[in-house]
Nucleic acid binder design. Structure first.
Length: 349
DNA sequence: AAATACGTCAACCGCGCGAAG
DNA sequence: TCTTCGCGCGGTTGACGTATT
């Protein structure tokens, strides 16, 4: 038995919407709210398929839709999200305020994928396109440098100018994936369950049931210390480290530049004043040149468990002695024990 | 000026999922 | 447990505008 059509195809308008149709749809939804798309056309006096009404509303008529060109910052965010999530446009759209999945998908297919390709980056895998069969993990360092420069080039120029030389400590990784805060709900569905769909994700979810594939690296923020401990102990399944921004960042960048997306660390990719948050897989890590010696030194003499967390709590300084967070920040991260996770992960993975 | 190629994006389509019965 | 239904998703199409020949 075939699947029943979503609506009768007889006498149903198709194609571009008229202003009159838009008005009918908007007025109906303003009065009755969204939902019940199947019955909506008849009730609203529209000769349209319910799915068509839904699409028109979600992609065009909703009042929160952002008009205008997609900005460079939005592009960067989309690229980074795509590196993590692939073609999961609805999830990506959920992280780009005012943009629809359709819009992002179109923008990706028409512009961003070509832009990446022109940079020598495969838009599907986010790896560098090479005809050389030696593109193995150990040869990724130069590619990382180039990719880093590319992503930074999408940012404001002063950040580009601050890109330090990167030195390699340990072995390289195979895949460069930028870290993005608070994606755990999304990644949970993507990675752990054999479900093919990841739709309707609760953005506010605090699910942390994430496992990592063996050759990929994700950064995310654990919910609490217990989760950190759990992840650290399960080295088989966790090959990523948490964001260590809070360990190193003086907070200024965040407060000044990320007002549009306060809940996401979306612009901190390759913020190279940081060290091990750049790329972290297994016992591999990258540090910026200025931090390398100290990082290695610290690696040889790790603090006691909880020491870093305590240090920041009490003194508000990071591991290099710089002011790290103000009281407000500390409060924000009281249940977000990224410091311990980052440090221990950097040491022991 | 006309024809053609190309780029953009709104809209359509089929499918999968979850809820309800 | 199975079927049906509504919804939402990603992939694709096609109309339209612009650029190029």
């Amino acid at each position: 038995m075939g699947r029943a059509p979503c609506c009768s195809k007889v006498g149903v308008n198709k194609g571009a919407w008229s202003a009159e149709e838009d008005n009918l749809l908007v007025k109906y939804i303003q009065t009755h709210g969204e939902g019940n798309w199947r019955s909506l056309p008849k009730k609203a006096g529209l000769r349209r398929c319910g799915k068509s009404c839904r699409l028109r509303w979600l992609n065009y008529l909703r009042p929160c839709i952002k008009r205008g060109n997609i900005t460079a910052d939005e592009e960067e965010l989309i690229i980074r999200m795509h590196a993590l999530l692939g073609n999961r446009w609805s999830i990506i759209a959920g992280r780009v305020p005012g943009r629809t999945d359709n819009e992002i998908k179109n923008h990706w297919n028409t512009k961003l994928s070509r832009k990446l390709a022109s940079r020598g980056i495969d838009p599907k895998t986010h790896k560098f396109i090479t005809t050389d069969s030696s593109n193995r993990a150990g040869d990724r360092f130069d590619q990382f440098q180039s990719e880093k420069q590319y992503y930074c080039s999408q940012r404001s120029q002063h950040l580009v100018s601050n890109v330090p030389k990167v030195v390699k400590v340990g072995r390289s990784t195979d895949l460069v994936i930028p870290h993005v805060h608070n994606l755990k709900a999304d990644l949970k569905v993507q990675e752990t369950e054999n479900k093919s769909s990841s739709r309707s994700l609760p953005v506010e979810s605090h699910n942390t049931n994430i496992s990592m594939s063996s050759d990929e690296c994700y950064n995310y923020t654990p919910a609490d210390s217990a989760e950190c401990a759990s992840l650290i102990s399960s080295s088989d399944s966790v090959e990523a480290k948490c964001d260590s921004r809070d360990l190193h960042d003086n907070g200024c960048h965040w407060n000044e530049k990320h007002d549009d997306f306060p809940e996401y660390d979306v612009f901190n990719f390759f913020d190279v004043s940081n060290a091990e948050n750049e790329i972290c897989c297994n016992d591999d890590y990258w540090v910026d040149e200025g931090s390398a010696d100290q990082f290695v030194k610290q690696k040889q003499a790790p603090p006691q468990s909880g020491q870093w967390d305590k240090q920041i709590d009490v003194e508000g300084k990071d591991n290099l002695g710089y002011p790290c967070m103000n009281a407000h920040d500390l409060s924000d991260h009281a249940n977000n024990d990224v410091t311990v996770m980052s440090w221990e992960a950097a040491l022991w993975y």
